[in-house]
Nucleic acid binder design. Structure first.
Length: 911
RNA sequence: GGGCGAAUAGCUCAGCUGGGAGAGCGCUUCCCUUACAAGGAAGAGGUCGCAGGUUCGAGUCCUGCUUCGCCCACCA
């Protein structure tokens, strides 16, 4: 038996070694066979390869690991598949930034060379985050580590794309999409963040061609007027009766545009007239479609103004004045145009206005709605089954409120823009024949064909030899790659081997739960449900737990750039992994956000230390023992104290079990904390100390302690795996159960539940508190002996001898239980609700002071009595309150009166 | 503009189906008692966001409002 245990828990000496030990033993590995055990499977949300561990990850993965360890201990065959996401735009941005330091752009490097660089980068840095997850203690099956650009994974992605194409769910469309002028790519509707920012609303006068006045339109983006093709008004708007059909002259540009009638404009807003720029606004585009209007583009992909395209697209003479704006950045162009409009008297006014802006989620650049040709996925049909499974309860959300949010979003789902104009990712498996449509291609300087328009794509997993229509060898592959979320959408079944029919799929699909943050509910969770149902024919997971967002103490989002973030690795370095995990899990339940700060980890570290020292105490008291013998003896209660602690243990087992089932990790942690610290350490261990000195009770008490701590460490293991394993090795490990990580999780034993023991001990604790209170109030130093104490339990029928406990725990020299009516002489008294205690302390009884103290006590009692009586005097209370409540109130009143009587009597006696 | 969360001790939060408010940290006082000072003991501290309503009785249920946060939404 080890007795050289340090007095404080040192996580750095324990945690890395324990983790390595489990790895060596292969404890994280699932069995890929039906060995008769039930199975439990989670596929983690693959973090970006560009990422490093932040508090959100720490919380997410602490939760993963609690569940995995809990299930493993319950005898499940547990598989957790880790991995990383290639994160198209994010990664490409990182590598492009590196190139920029060398003065290079990706275009200078060329696609192939650039991709080599990205792969290099990923080899070097792409595994950082997975290594960090190991530091968190995650018991994942690292053999299964996947990457969304692995060859097999890429094959699955192409398979999905081809099948959806064949099944008619994909299409090429020219639409106004969200364009990031910095990333130079399209983004889906959910990859942008909407913010309202202060700006200006410009009112511009568009004169009628015939000189009969003007129409005033309002816009927040005046530069787009270059591409205006009409002004629209609502047909019901009386202000424009008889004017529709007339021509307007576009200021600065001089182009003639019509005034048209369309249901879109809201007559109540401003002048009721809307300028129509089909290429740069989704609503305007639809108006344009309805009226068969042209849609000239006035912006380049980098956000600069292009007025030459205007000439080409409108087949119109180029107004020389426009040259001023050509090549200017959109904001520069805006300033110029506003100035020119004002100078020429076209600007009616510019008012302050809160403008809704869309920014790129990745780089925060203001998005530009831009007309372009993209690949889309038609969603409504695919979404249907994913709606059904939720309505039927086959997939359940925790917290439940997310169910409604999910359903509402799914029922209004919009088509998904799949193509991205970047290089890092899954290149779209579509080829176009130059021979069939030479007009769709331009020849570059390097003599390569550049795709201008997508027509008649040949969609298949591998490059076709020749055009199936004309036999030409001149085929050009679509340069675009797929949205990163397209590949992560198939994560659960793909990491298990799809499209092959693998043993992993058969054993572990559907997985059990998906654990994630709320921000990717639509981006990812919903899409996995759609692809899982479509391709694997079954739900990807049975439950979805959406955990809180981690905020700082001020309730602000943790952000590196704002400096409001906390680095979990730093916290691990300071306080250890188990402390960090505990501090997070201790507040992880059904809330949508949690505030996190370092003091929480300090508290958690202190708790770990408490566990360490409590177990140290047990070990020190087991030095002479044979553990085998003690295990054979088992938990045999000596008395009510033991029955009470076993009872509380059952309660704790029950609470932890219930909490983990319901994803209320906070409740489980609190139950454990309360049990271990308050009940085991503060009461049980203190009370048991004298018994350990008794030759007749020592062994039985040792057996109790061994059992209790064995159970307690098992319960703690999912939350604090390292320290619990380390300590358990000293007291729990047997040839049958050599490691805690695979030992059996405790289950409630009804035979150990004992309410009466609980009540009995509650009374003991009350008495002891009353004694301590007296001592403290009278400033009796803890060491000073108290010659005599009498305790008088009230209302308990049991003939148990409480006095010995009180003497032991409260360090009394002499203690006796008395019955009513025989109070001692010249003592101090403390009346507690269900007990009263009398102490005699030589020379310390100042009668007057004592009387004053008790008078105060009496006054407090009387106030309470008044309150209760007031309620009982109320006729409606007696009539309408539940009978048991009335009864309870009556007994309460009686008890108060009785205390009152006794106090008074005691006061009399003190005279 | 809709939807959802939150508002309780100085701080961070518990309070299930309505019966008189709890924890951790912080604070005060006393203790280095041989598991633990990262500890022990005893305390102080709250018109439970505001205003109504239901009820014998409301942090708890209903209505309205205020403040903060999140999600969704094409209003020029």
């Amino acid at each position: 038996m080890r007795t050289d245990i340090p007095k404080t828990y040192n996580p750095h000496q324990v945690e890395p070694l324990r983790y390595a030990w489990w790895m060596e033993r292969g404890d994280f590995y699932a069995t890929i066979a039906n060995d008769g055990r039930p199975r439990y499977c989670i596929t983690i949300p693959p973090p970006n390869i560009t990422g490093s561990l932040h508090m959100g990850h720490a919380l997410n993965h602490a939760i993963h690991d609690v569940l995995l360890r809990w299930k493993r201990m319950q005898g499940y065959n547990v598989l957790c598949v880790p991995g990383t996401d290639h994160a198209g735009i994010a990664t490409q941005n990182v590598v492009e930034r590196e190139l920029l330091k060398e003065g290079l752009t990706r275009h200078q490097l060329g696609r192939e060379k650039f991709l080599e660089r990205v792969w290099q980068w990923r080899e070097q840095y792409g595994h950082t985050i997975l290594m960090q997850l190991r530091k968190l203690g995650c018991s994942y099956d690292w053999r299964y580590t996947r990457f969304t650009l692995d060859p097999e994974y890429a094959d699955a992605v192409l398979e999905v794309f081809v099948r959806w194409w064949q099944d008619g769910h994909l299409y090429i469309g020219e639409r106004v999409i969200n364009w990031c002028p910095r990333c130079m790519t399209a983004l889906s509707d959910i990859e942008i963040e909407q913010v309202d920012e202060p700006g200006k609303l410009y009112h511009i006068r568009y004169p009628f061609e015939d000189g009969s006045g003007a129409v005033v339109v309002a816009t927040t983006r005046p530069e787009t007027m270059l591409g205006d093709v009409a002004v629209a008004v609502n047909p019901s708007d009386p202000r424009y009766d008889g004017l529709v059909g007339k021509s307007l002259i576009l200021p600065l540009v001089g182009r003639r545009i019509p005034l048209i009638a369309d249901p879109y404009p809201d007559p109540a807003f401003g002048t009721g007239a809307v300028k129509v720029t089909p290429a740069h606004d989704p609503d305007d585009f639809e108006i344009g479609q309805r009226h068969n209007l042209p849609h000239p583009t006035i912006l380049n992909w980098d956000g600069t103004v292009n007025t030459e395209r205007l000439r080409d697209e409108l087949n119109a003479p180029h107004h020389p004045y426009l040259q001023r704006y050509h090549g200017k950045d959109r904001y520069e162009a805006r300033r110029l145009i506003v100035a020119d409009l004002e100078a020429q008297g076209f600007l009616e006014k510019a008012e302050d206005y809160s403008i809704p802006l869309a920014r790129c989620e990745r780089c925060h650049t203001v998005m530009e709605p831009l007309l372009s040709e993209q690949w889309f996925c038609r969603m409504s049909e695919i979404a249907q089954p994913a709606i059904e499974v939720v309505k039927q309860g086959k997939i359940r959300f925790f917290p439940e409120r997310y169910t409604e949010m999910y359903l509402q979003w799914m029922e209004n789902i919009r088509d998904w823009c799949l193509s991205r104009q970047i290089w890092w990712g899954h290149q779209i498996p579509a080829w176009y024949c130059v021979a069939c449509h030479p007009e769709n291609f331009a020849l570059t300087d390097r003599g390569e064909y550049r795709l201008l328009k997508r027509e008649s794509p040949i969609v298949q997993k591998s490059a076709p030899d020749r055009c199936p229509r004309c036999g030409s060898l001149q085929l050009v592959r679509d340069p675009d790659v797929l949205d990163t979320w397209f590949s992560s959408a198939i994560w659960p079944h793909t990491v298990l081997g799809w499209p092959n029919d693998t043993e992993e799929l058969r054993l572990f699909y559907p997985t059990d739960v998906l654990l994630t943050a709320q921000e990717i509910l639509y981006l990812w969770v919903a899409r996995m449900m759609m692809t899982g149902l479509y391709f694997q024919g079954d739900i990807p997971f049975r439950e979805v737990y959406i955990h809180a967002t981690v905020l700082n103490k001020e309730g602000k989002r943790m952000s590196k750039s704002l400096g409001t973030g906390i680095d979990p690795l730093e916290l691990i370095a300071k306080y250890g992994t188990d402390a960090l995990r505990w501090s997070l899990l201790q507040q992880a339940g059904m809330q949508q956000s949690i505030r996190f700060y370092e003091e929480r980890v300090v508290t958690a570290r202190n708790f770990a230390n408490k566990v360490w020292n409590a177990t140290r105490f047990v070990l020190l008291n087991l030095e002479d023992a044979n553990l085998e013998t003690l295990r054979r003896i088992g938990p045999q209660p000596v008395d009510a104290l033991d029955r009470w602690i076993l009872h509380r243990l059952q309660h704790t087992i029950q609470a932890v079990d219930q909490a983990l089932r319901a994803y209320c990790f906070d409740d489980g942690a609190n139950a454990l904390y309360e049990f271990i610290w308050s009940e085991v350490c503060d009461w049980y261990l203190e009370a048991v100390k004298p018994r350990l000195q008794s030759p007749t009770q020592r062994q039985q008490t040792q057996a109790m302690l061994l059992y209790l701590f064995d159970q307690l460490l098992r319960l703690l293991h999912p939350y604090m795996p390292h320290i619990s394993e380390e300590l358990w090795q000293a007291i729990g490990a047997t040839p049958d159960e050599p490691a805690l990580i695979t030992a059996r999780f405790p289950e409630v034993n009804p035979a150990m539940c004992d309410e009466s023991a609980a009540e009995e001990m509650a009374q003991v604790f009350e008495i002891i508190r009353a004694i301590r209170n007296l001592r403290a109030e009278l400033k009796i130093t803890p060491g000073a002996p108290i010659p005599k104490a009498w305790v008088h339990p009230i209302g308990s029928e049991s003939q148990t001898r409480l006095a010995p406990y009180c003497a032991l725990i409260a360090h009394l020299a002499w203690c006796q239980e008395i019955v009513l009516g025989t109070p001692p002489e010249r003592a101090l008294m403390n009346p507690a609700p269900n007990a009263e205690v009398f102490l005699t302390i030589a020379g310390l009884v100042d009668i007057e002071r004592e009387r004053a103290r008790l008078q105060k006590e009496l006054a407090k009692l009387e106030a309470e009595i008044k309150q209760v009586q007031a309620r009982l005097r109320h006729p409606q209370f007696l009539e309408r309150a539940k009978p048991e409540v009335v009864r309870e109130t009556r007994t309460q009143e009686q008890a108060l009166w009785a205390r009152h009587q006794r106090l008074k009597q005691w006061l009399e006696q003190l005279k």
